[in-house]
Simulated scan of single mutants.
Amino acid sequence: MNNGKTCLLIDDDIDDQEIFTLVLKSVNPSISCIVAHDGVEAVSRLTSEATLNPDYIFLDLNMPRMDGKECLQEIRKIDRLRQTPVIIYSTSSEQKDIVETQSLGASDYLEKQSSVEDLKRMLAHFFK
């Protein structure tokens, strides 16, 4: 069981943030979800707040200021987060994005779901 785990969602889309956090709560209420609105904010917080040690990081690819691939590279430079699973969470189903993010250190790749039920199934499988 994932007692007291923390998930960091890095996504610039407010609707996607709300849906993700609500569905995650329904799948596993013991996981708390922290949100960063883009890669710049996420990297800044992860480098300056030593107590911010998420157990999982879900990362969108298409964001302003710093895209998901750049953000992933910066996260992988932070020693305490080298073993933290970073899961790409994107609308893109492009094979090149999947291959490239894996080569940059992504642990997994989840395509954003169009329905809440599909997202619930996906997260339930992930956090079983």
Rank of each mutant, 00 (worst) to 15 (best):
K77P: 08
V40P: 02
Q17H: 05
S90K: 04
F58N: 11
M1T: 08
E70A: 10
S30N: 13
P85I: 04
D55T: 04
S26H: 11
R121E: 06
T47K: 15
S26T: 09
R76Y: 10
V35P: 08
I75G: 00
I88G: 09
E49W: 03
D16N: 15
T101F: 06
Q113M: 13
N62F: 06
L24M: 15
L110N: 05
V27M: 05
D38P: 06
L123H: 01
M66Q: 15
I10W: 08
F126N: 01
T51G: 10
V116S: 07
M1K: 08
T51F: 07
S92A: 07
Y56V: 07
M66V: 08
L61V: 04
P54K: 09
F127Y: 05
A42L: 05
D15A: 10
S103C: 00
G105Y: 07
D97N: 14
A42M: 01
C33I: 09
E49N: 15
Y89L: 07
T91R: 10
A50F: 00
L59I: 07
I98C: 00
E94D: 15
D16S: 12
T47M: 02
T101H: 00
Y109I: 07
P29Y: 06
A124D: 13
D12I: 12
D15C: 03
N53Y: 03
I88S: 10
L59H: 03
S103A: 12
E74P: 04
D16H: 11
L46I: 06
D108K: 10
D60M: 04
P64R: 04
V23D: 11
E49M: 12
T51R: 11
K96V: 06
I87L: 13
V43N: 06
C33S: 13
Q83K: 14
V40K: 15
L8A: 01
V116L: 11
S92N: 08
A42H: 06
C7W: 02
I87E: 07
S93P: 00
E18V: 08
S115K: 14
V23L: 05
I88H: 08
V99M: 10
D12A: 07
I19C: 01
S44N: 15
G105C: 07
H37R: 15
T101L: 02
L59F: 01
S48R: 12
Y109A: 01
I57P: 04
K96T: 12
Q83N: 12
T101G: 03
D60N: 14
L81P: 13
N28L: 03
T6E: 14
P85C: 05
L119H: 08
Q83G: 02
H125N: 09
E74R: 15
I78V: 13
L22R: 10
D67L: 02
E74F: 02
